[in-house]
Amino acid sequence: MFGFVERAITQVGTTTVRIAREVGGIVVLAFDVLRALFPPTLDGRELVKNLYKMGNQSVPIVALTAFFAGGLMLVQSAPFVEKLQAHALAGWAAGYAVLREIGPILIALMFSGRVGANNTAELGTMTVTEQLDGLRALAIDPIRYLIVPRVVAMVVMLLALTVIGDLVALVGAAITAKAVVGIEFSTFIHSVVDNLKPYDFLHGIYKSMVFGASIALTSCYFGVTVRGGAVGVGRAVNAAVVAAAVSVMLLDFFMTYWLG
């Protein structure tokens, strides 16, 4: 009994210390990145290369995710809409949920799983093969040269993907509305246009920028702190996607309160 309590306390203690260290590391990295951005000495070639690669990796998956996310929200609201016989409400209910919450969150999670995980694996491999030290030895700052372009590319890319994804999700919702509940497209479009404000859209977009920054920083942090060869890289990818998911959920909470 006592042994169990002791073990539990030790477990909580070590977990807390580990989380505190990781959060601290990510915050320090965030400051380094900010400092490197003023004045902006961004390596254009790296930025373009990363934008291209990340876009390629994520656009199809995000489009698919967004389409089904929109459809899902419509199906979830369908029993309610049927009950009230209020077809005019369907687009509004689904659109509100998609634009403010489901769209940004699901797209961010998918982006983290695809682009963030890949980025961690790439930086992790570079770290264990001493390529980061190689950069330092050439008097090139790895933060400025490697990290900053990736962070900027990820923020820009997730923002763009959320804009596209919102649109695709509304299309998905409209098609589902027609196919499952039998709501006409025109009814759906009216419902969206009449009831949703531009701010509902912006609310989600602001969130996506913050999500982008947090996914980028976590994935870079876990990449450059890899220890222990190939197994270490796998573990880092796992830790990075989990940390990114938690940070997206936490930030969503604070952003929702803050943005209103």
């Binding site: 491999t125 390529q131 030290d133 190689g134």
Partner: peptide, 10 residues
């Protein structure tokens, strides 16, 4: 510095 495992960017 020339590293043992070259550290060329792959």
């Amino acid at each position: 510095m020339v590293f043992q495992n070259s550290t060329l960017f792959d």
